[in-house]
Simulated assay, not measured.
Amino acid sequence: MSTAPQAAPDRSRWVVVALVAGLVVAAAVYAISGLVLGGDDARDAKAGDCLASDKQVEDEGTTRTGANLVDCSAEDARFTVVARVDGESSTQSDSCNKFFQEKEEFYVYANGDDRGYLLCLRPRA
């Protein structure tokens, strides 16, 4: 009695399953890291938007804080975005100076992720 050889497992199917599983795991890690690490809630901010900060921002020096894009009518809206400067990430940059009058109070929010960006902010009254 002769038996037919068993078919070899379909490797391409397992490769596709492994790739899909890897993508699902990567997407989950990215989503969870955004929740745990806070992500960058200000990354989509543009001129005219309003921000709330995670901490009280000092008038002098640098305050390490996060920023959240909020509705301008929200009670925690502390800053109005006057301008956005992409490709820079230093709070010491002079790029925001041109958007304000001399001696006018303003703040700079800097993010160094990817290419970086600055948000030039005016405090809300």
Rank of each mutant, 00 (worst) to 15 (best):
M1E: 11
M1W: 06
T3A: 11
A4I: 10
P5S: 07
Q6G: 13
A8C: 09
A8H: 10
P9W: 05
D10E: 13
R11Y: 10
W14R: 04
V15S: 04
V16A: 12
V16C: 03
V17Q: 02
A18L: 12
A18I: 05
L19I: 11
V20C: 04
V20N: 02
V20G: 01
A21H: 00
L23E: 00
L23C: 03
A27M: 06
A27D: 03
A27H: 02
A28G: 14
Y30L: 13
Y30E: 12
A31D: 12
I32W: 14
S33E: 15
G34F: 11
G34H: 06
G34N: 12
L35W: 15
L35K: 14
V36E: 05
L37W: 11
L37I: 04
L37R: 13
L37T: 13
G38L: 00
G38Q: 09
G38K: 12
G39M: 02
D40L: 10
D40Y: 12
D41F: 04
D41S: 15
D41R: 15
A42G: 08
A42Y: 01
R43C: 00
R43M: 06
R43F: 09
D44R: 08
D44W: 05
A47I: 05
D49G: 04
C50M: 14
L51T: 11
K55P: 09
Q56S: 15
Q56E: 15
Q56P: 06
V57S: 08
V57P: 09
E58F: 10
E58T: 13
D59L: 07
D59F: 07
D59N: 14
E60G: 03
T62L: 11
T62Y: 08
T63I: 07
T63Q: 01
T63S: 13
V70E: 10
V70L: 12
V70K: 08
D71H: 14
D71S: 15
C72V: 14
C72F: 14
A74E: 14
E75F: 07
A77D: 06
R78H: 10
F79H: 09
T80G: 12
V81P: 02
V81E: 00
V81S: 00
V82R: 08
A83S: 09
R84M: 04
R84E: 06
G87S: 05
S89H: 11
S90Q: 09
S90L: 06
T91D: 01
T91L: 00
T91M: 00
Q92N: 14
Q92C: 00
Q92K: 12
D94N: 09
D94I: 06
S95N: 10
S95T: 01
C96E: 02
N97Y: 00
K98H: 02
F99V: 01
F100T: 01
F100A: 07
F100S: 09
E102C: 02
E102T: 07
K103L: 04
E104P: 08
E104K: 05
E104Y: 04
E105T: 15
E105Y: 05
E105D: 13
V108I: 11
V108H: 05
Y109R: 14
Y109Q: 08
N111G: 06
N111F: 10
G112Y: 05
G112V: 08
D114N: 13
R115Q: 13
R115K: 14
R115D: 15
R115I: 10
G116H: 00
Y117H: 10
L118E: 01
L119R: 07
L121T: 11
R122F: 05
R122H: 03
R124H: 11
R124M: 13
A125D: 15
A125W: 03
